[in-house]
Amino acid sequence: MNNQEDLLKIGNRTFRSRLFVGTGKYATFGLMAEALEASGCEVVTVALRRVNLNAPKGEKTLLDYIDPKRYTILPNTAGCYTKDDAIKIARIARELGIGDWVKLEVLADEKTLFPDPVETLEATIALVKEGFEVLAYTSDDPVLARRLEDAGATCVMPLGSPIGSGQGIINRNNIRLIVENAKVPIIVDAGVGTASDVTIAMELGADGVLLNTGIACAKDPVKMAHAMRHAIEAGRLAYRAGRIPIKRYAAASSPMLDF
């Protein structure tokens, strides 16, 4: 098996790494840069906010720590609660020259940060019409995932569990159903707490995993990023290798005694 050729294709973009990493919540930009490096990721997500005009002149910003030649920047619409706000953020992102793709995130409430399914679907339809490649953050509902794909989403991103919760993949069956039904890439986004969660998502057949808090808020973010890099490769290889069926009784590994 030639692992070099196992590439992830999202729209017209091709990636070797199947791990997407967020740039929020790190103690320092320096630590973030180190963690990104250790994760082996090629895609990093960013949010869009007002410039702090009261910051000291020459203060470093996020872009000083992300080499655009090395990482592909995926802007998100985090913090939006309506489709109109999300569409506005997507247009702003396009104006920043980071391409026409966007991680669409339209949230329903602050407590769960669950995506609002109706607003997300309507925003997807509108943004696809405007020529955007939409990577739609969604719940783990297979029906909604299908509807987003039908609406023209380039990639569907079901949550493993609530954003930042670290609960891992709560509904493995749904993730598997979403993957089986999809013709677009499925990237599990949100809820990943540790390396095994990433591996499970990949073993279920996900095309990739997007995470942020699991690395940024680990005691040692660089070490955790390194673990996540191995986890995504392990899970992907296991998925492609084809696991054995689960049996109820033992099956001996050594030949039966014949003397």
Binding site: T23, G24, V46, N212
Partner: peptide
């Protein structure tokens, strides 16, 4: 005036 900041 908007720019990129850290986010997931």
């Amino acid at each position: 005036v908007i720019h990129m900041v850290g986010g997931g």
